[in-house]
Nucleic acid binder design. Structure first.
Lengths: 207, 207
DNA sequence: TTGATTAAAACAAACGTTTAATTAGTGGTA
DNA sequence: TACCACTAATTAAACGTTTGTTTTAATCAA
């Protein structure tokens, strides 16, 4: 079955609505209305509201594994340069797809759909392995401080950007950014990158 | 009207259930069953499910303003020591009350109850003012690096711990912590504190 | 004609809330 | 102590909506 206009329209509108509100707070009637289709089409195309939700997340969660792997295993880069590349990659990745990462964020913080949660987790875990490898390598090569907590550093990067994307309304107020749109703009994105690169340089590198 | 056993029981069970699942995913029947009271008691004591939710969050959100203010305005402490004190305070505060901070976290990341969201925001904003003051003071005194992004540093601290608490299931896997209980234990808590103190020392202080 | 698509209507189940009736508790009066 | 009056607390049942899903029939394309 190929992707019809209507199916694509439903997915597109679902991404918008589910980015703003929880799974239960968005009804199939809301979805159908937004996508300008009949209510029955959700069940017809996806089987159920829940399957639509899963298909949406999975389809939009682009595979970052190959990129992370490429960075982590590059023999020509220094460890700190690899960290910089990861900062750039994650910042852009999360900020280019705020909707789906809001959804992923919420799925990881509740236990309503444990099977979906575990699926997301398994996809993320692979990246974690490569990142751990990369960080440990930095220590072994004597580039990074031995007593740096590289595990926390990695989750710090991910958590902080994820949090800013997920709670953009809140983050704007805290960071004195006037509008949510500006939060995802090039300028603020650069500020995030600069912050983390600067932060990790000071924290990880030996003096 | 004083707080009866039943009212307190409802609030206690509500905190557990709302910590695990969204507002809509927890029904009044779930709540009544868990608290071992009749369904009608939720409306009777709180007016509505939504008002119960609001009352729960507000009552459990202890006032951190005085503590933060005391730290920020203490004339005997150095700026970096103030940062250390804030790290200790926030870590314990969030990890001692994971349930309510999960709820707050979710409220800040959706727009289902904008009025509650803005109320939470206003309570948090006061702290932000004191923290900004404290950080700028560190720069003026020449203790902190001029080009440190203190705004992002503060939200980084808050976001990261909030994220670990909010997505504890996920965080366990990422940090190789076996159980969620251990995530809130003294040992891991100390690891968090050490990480951030070390991180900010390297990032903020002049060489 | 055949099979996929669309629409309107109906479905049962679950939702939050309210009603009406009953019990428990309190304070005052004798 | 006993009785009454009154309010608060509690219950079971029912309320009207809304939920996600299905059915049935009509329409369209090949």
């Amino acid at each position: 079955m190929e992707i019809t206009d209507k199916k694509a329209a439903i997915l597109a509108e679902a991404e918008k609505l589910f980015a703003q509100e929880d799974f239960d707070a968005v009804s199939v009637r809301d979805l159908a209305k937004a996508a300008n289709v009949n209510i029955a089409m959700i069940s017809y195309y996806f089987g159920s509201k829940e399957k639509l939700f899963e298909e949406l997340i999975i389809s939009r969660m682009a595979n970052s594994q190959t990129t992370i792997q490429a960075i982590a295993t590059d023999p020509t880069m220094s460890s700190i340069d690899k960290v910089m590349a990861v900062v750039d990659f994650y910042t852009d990745r999360l900020m280019n797809n705020p909707g789906v990462h809001r959804m992923i964020n919420r799925e990881l913080s509740n236990s309503s759909r444990p099977q979906l949660r575990d699926l997301l987790l398994s996809k993320i875990t692979t990246n974690k392995e490569y990142l751990s490898m990369m960080m440990e390598e930095g220590k072994k090569k004597g580039e990074f401080r031995e007593d740096a907590d590289v595990g926390l550093a990695m989750i710090n990067l991910f958590a902080c950007i994820q949090y800013i994307v997920g709670s953009s309304y809140y983050s704007c107020k805290m960071l004195d950014v006037p509008t949510e749109a500006q939060l995802f703009d090039k300028e603020f994105r650069q500020r995030i990158k600069t912050y983390f690169k600067d932060l990790f340089s000071h924290y990880l590198l030996k003096k």
